[in-house]
Computed example of a mutant assay.
Amino acid sequence: MSLTLDYFIDENLKLFQDPEHFRFNTDTKLLAQFVRLKKQERVLDIGTNNAAILVYLDQFNVKELVGVEILGETSKVAQKNVDTFIKHRARIVNKPIQEYTDNLFDVIVSNPPYFKMNANQQPEKLNYRHLGRMEENLTLEQLVYHASRLLKSYGRFYMVHRPNRLNEINRVLYANHFSIRNLQFAYDHRDNKVKSVLIEAIKESNCDMNVLEPIYI
């Protein structure tokens, strides 16, 4: 396993990455900074990849950080980052979120795969980077269902996704007892097009939706 040592958002936040795997990107950074934590909360990162978001959230007064990652080699990188850089109680679980059980969390975070599999794609031909982007192991419906299953009532679910799927996202969230509280669009300053949407959804809440000021990247 040949790893690079990079910094994430801040030069003081370092982590290891595997060049062959899905590496953190702008959306990972946007999501990490979008999350708001209260004191002593338990946080779950679904599809934690190399645990970059957990490394960032370790700066705050958390009770526990948990990352679930289905890919074995990727979870080893995440575990190395937890062991090396995280100060709070933290653990990496190498299994599908569909099989994961735990006490309920206060906050759940996910930077999930954005793209649906099509009929011509053969799963066995997908590499690690493809698996970070394609819904082979985790569909939007599965993600939201299991986030609801593992989250406390009035718990907060943070995710980043593509704006063209916003109708579907809202429908799936509502079907799983979530209401969107905060929505924020990230624009590419070069063409002024929306590239990503950041979502904070509250479980079993009838809150109004706030559309926050846009981000330009």
Rank of each mutant, 00 (worst) to 15 (best):
I180A: 06
E204P: 03
D191P: 08
F178Q: 09
Y174S: 14
D188W: 06
L183K: 14
N192L: 15
D208E: 13
Y187D: 07
I202H: 03
R171D: 12
I202E: 05
E204M: 11
I202T: 04
M209T: 15
A186I: 07
F178N: 10
S196F: 13
L198S: 07
K203L: 14
N192T: 02
H177I: 00
V211A: 04
R181M: 02
I180G: 09
I202R: 13
L198I: 05
V211N: 01
I180F: 02
N182L: 07
N210E: 12
E204W: 01
N210C: 03
S196P: 00
L183I: 06
N170V: 06
R190I: 11
N182A: 05
E204Q: 10
C207A: 12
E200A: 05
E200M: 14
D191I: 05
D191C: 06
R181P: 00
I199R: 05
V197S: 06
Y174L: 11
C207E: 13
R181Q: 12
H177R: 13
D188A: 11
H189G: 01
N170W: 02
A201P: 07
S205F: 00
D208P: 00
V211R: 02
I180D: 09
L173R: 06
N176E: 07
N176H: 15
L173H: 04
R190E: 12
F185Q: 04
S205V: 04
A175C: 04
H189Q: 06
S205L: 02
N170S: 11
K203S: 04
N210W: 02
Y174W: 00
I180R: 02
R190N: 14
L212T: 02
H177K: 14
I180Q: 05
V172E: 12
S205R: 01
S196N: 12
V194P: 03
Q184L: 08
C207V: 15
N206G: 14
F178Y: 07
K193R: 14
I199N: 07
S196C: 00
E200N: 08
F178M: 09
E204G: 01
V172C: 02
H177F: 12
D191V: 04
M209V: 11
